[in-house]
C-alpha cells in the first residue's frame, strides 16, 4: 500500500447531473500506474443513490475504485469514491473523514466541502476538476484550491450535459484549463510526467 506523502498531489473531481458518464470517461483515461490519489465525488441527488457506483466506474477504469472510509489514508493510484449521503473531507494527515453535517450547496456529499478541505490539507498540491452538473456546488471549493496555488480544471460548459456547475465554477473560481471531457482525462494523465 502506497500512502500519499505531503509533497504529493491529489486529484479531486466533482460531478453531478450527467456525471456518471463523464466520470467514466475521465477516469478511463488514467493509466494503471497513476502516481497520485484520485477522489471522485458524484452527487447522489442526481439519482445514483443505491447503485454500486464503484462497480460501475471500475469497469472503465484501470485504477482500483474504492469507497473512501473515515480515518483511512489516501492512497496513490486509487480512485476513492465519496460515499452517498456523507460529506467527504481530507485531513491534514492525508486521511479521510466523513460527516453528516448539513447539506452544503443543497447537496451531501458536497464538492465545496471536499475541495476546501483538500486545499487546506495539500495547498498547491490540490488539483480540482469540475464536470457537468445542474447546481453551483464546487465553485467555492475550486476557488479555495486556486487561492492556495492549486490547479483548477473545468469542463467546457458548451459541451457539458448540464452546464451550470462548470459555468458557476468559471464565474466564481476561474480555471487554469477549460477543456472538453475527452481532453480532461488526457490532461490529468499527462500532469505527473510534466511535474516529474
Amino acid at each position: 500500500m502506497r500512502h500519499a506523502s505531503p509533497a504529493q498531489r491529489v486529484v479531486a473531481i466533482g460531478a453531478s447531473v450527467g456525471g456518471l458518464e463523464a466520470l467514466k470517461q475521465v477516469l478511463g483515461a488514467l493509466p494503471a500506474d497513476y502516481p497520485w490519489p484520485v477522489i471522485a465525488l458524484l452527487h447522489t441527488s442526481a439519482g445514483y443513490r443505491g447503485t454500486r457506483l464503484d462497480t460501475l466506474l471500475a469497469q472503465r477504469c484501470a485504477l482500483p475504485v474504492r469507497e473512501a472510509e473515515a480515518r483511512r489514508p489516501l492512497e496513490s493510484g486509487v480512485v476513492h469514491l465519496a460515499p452517498a449521503g456523507y460529506h467527504l473531507l481530507v485531513e491534514q494527515d492525508l486521511r479521510f473523514s466523513l460527516s453528516v453535517d448539513e447539506k452544503v450547496s443543497y447537496v451531501r456529499p458536497s464538492a465545496d466541502v471536499l475541495f476546501e478541505s483538500l486545499a487546506e490539507a495539500v495547498g498547491a498540491g490540490a488539483i480540482g476538476v469540475i464536470l457537468t452538473g445542474a447546481n453551483d456546488d464546487g465553485a467555492a471549493g475550486l476557488a479555495a484550491i486556486r487561492a492556495r496555488g492549486g490547479l483548477a480544471i473545468v469542463q467546457d460548459p458548451q459541451e457539458a450535459q448540464a452546464p451550470q456547475m462548470p459555468q458557476a465554477a468559471l464565474r466564481i473560481a476561474g480555471a487554469d484549463h477549460v477543456l472538453p471531457l475527452a481532453a480532461i482525462g488526457a490532461r490529468l494523465a499527462a500532469l505527473p510526467r510534466e511535474s516529474a
Binding site: 473515515a70 473531507l89 485531513e91 473523514s97 460527516s99 453535517d101 466541502v113 487546506e120
Partner: peptide, 9 residues
C-alpha cells in the same frame, strides 16, 4: 475531534 469538520463547524 477530526479537525476538518470541526473547523467547518
Amino acid at each position: 475531534y477530526a479537525p476538518a469538520s470541526f473547523k467547518r463547524r
